[in-house]
Design a protein around this nucleic acid. Structure first.
Lengths: 234, 234
DNA sequence: TGATGTTGGTACCCGCAGGTAGGATTTCCA
DNA sequence: TGGAAATCCTACCTGCGGGTACCAACATCA
């Protein structure tokens, strides 16, 4: 894998009889579940991971539609059927990538909800953590938001649910802060959207080589969020 | 135009001799400048406008790549060459649409900079106006941000410049407020990005039929911006 | 009342990228 | 150690959609 010298496979050089025939559906494509050695699975998983990594880089760089699977294959030093062996089709790759773009933030947020202590502190920590994951998985986040219109219905639905959940969770945390008298918010739902925007937007402008360190950004945005809810941090 | 009954054009039904030949470059495509009647120009402009409107609707709905020019043509009740008569190619349409998505906000912001009075008031008015334009031209805004990766270099550059300008202008206004002692901001550039995110993000969630009216949204977001800069509005 | 320029429809071309057939190797187990 | 199953490459196929050649109709002015 990956840039290995020309994998010495004796080329058949057959000229193909162009007859078509109904053939069995191969190894079901997309994770044959397997029952065999655990090693097998790990290798499989690893390869899938490699594909996703390269694909996300290319999708991020050139956009989904402009990225061809041949490009992905070339980066990996393999060919298209390799990819099709591991994924049903191009959309499945996009789906997988996008799922990662959104799911992590929710986890972080859920933990903050469960936590104890002042709502302000939890909000601060939550935002910091969320920004952190956005910066870390910037490519996945960007793809998730940019390529919305390239999802087909069945994969779009769950992703949208997760996204809505994010706003809902954030709203709940804000609500708690208001109830406890820590926050002063005119419209909670709107405030949640505003915070979400401020935070998510980072995927558009963050650069590793930027003026501020990731730590500073996390802290800075978290403080701004606190200002927005009327609970500025010392 | 537009859903007219089958435009009765006698069909030639010729079977075409498939010979190719070098022909002159037609009416230069994309606004033949014209010198004739002023009426002519207005009609031309109107048609271009119609194309842009339908295209933006479809781009917004299905994404740029998934929208075919045949779809646009069909919506207008015309055919593809009609479009190609008015635009050089598909990218030119996207370019035009995107330009509108970003340029208006800058104008508004520039006016606020020039204005007199407290920085806080001007920021409030500026944000309100910007949100207003974002809501009004939601489709254009969405396309501008989503389709970044579908611009080719020469059109991307000016658009990026305009976008950067937005942040710069906003920063300047914030800076002024800090200088006057009205705002308390830890990091001006970051704060500008945060406000920009909060505001621009509206293109992702705004719905005309939503809970809040456009007016309320403009006011609400503007107030949140003031909270962020430490100058809450009574 | 033609000649000349505009306008856009018909019918087509063609390249690219998603996807597949089928077989050549290798791997895994009995 | 033989044979089934897994893996992935070579060589295709195919359709869709951007773009074009050509011409019919209309407008305009002389």
């Amino acid at each position: 894998m990956a840039k290995s010298p020309p994998t010495s496979r004796p080329k058949p050089a057959s000229k193909r009889a162009k007859t078509a025939s109904v053939s069995s559906k191969a190894p079901k494509a997309a994770a044959p579940a397997s029952r065999k050695s655990p090693m097998r699975d790990q290798v499989m998983a690893f390869k899938r991971e490699q594909i996703l990594t390269e694909a996300s880089e290319l999708f991020y760089e050139h956009g989904y539609q402009r990225t061809t699977l041949d490009m992905v294959a070339q980066r990996l030093g393999v060919t298209k059927p390799f990819i099709y062996y591991h994924f049903k089709d191009k959309a499945a790759i996009l789906s997988e990538i996008s799922k990662r773009g959104i799911s992590r933030g929710n986890e972080v947020l859920r933990q903050s909800l469960d936590g104890k202590g002042r709502a302000a502190d939890r909000l601060y920590e939550a935002i910091k953590a969320i920004v952190r994951t956005i910066l870390n998985s910037q490519r996945y986040t960007a793809i998730f938001f940019r390529e919305q219109k390239n999802f087909d219905a069945e994969i779009l639905a769950p992703l949208e649910t997760m996204h809505r959940e994010f706003d809902a969770l954030l709203s709940r945390l804000l609500e708690e802060g208001v109830a406890k008298g820590e926050f002063r918010i005119a419209d909670i739902r709107l405030c949640a959207l505003a915070i979400g925007g401020m935070v998510n937007w980072a995927y558009t402008w963050y650069r590793e080589s930027g003026r501020l360190s990731a730590d500073d950004l996390c802290d800075g945005l978290a403080r701004l969020a606190l200002q927005m809810v009327g609970a500025p941090r010392a």
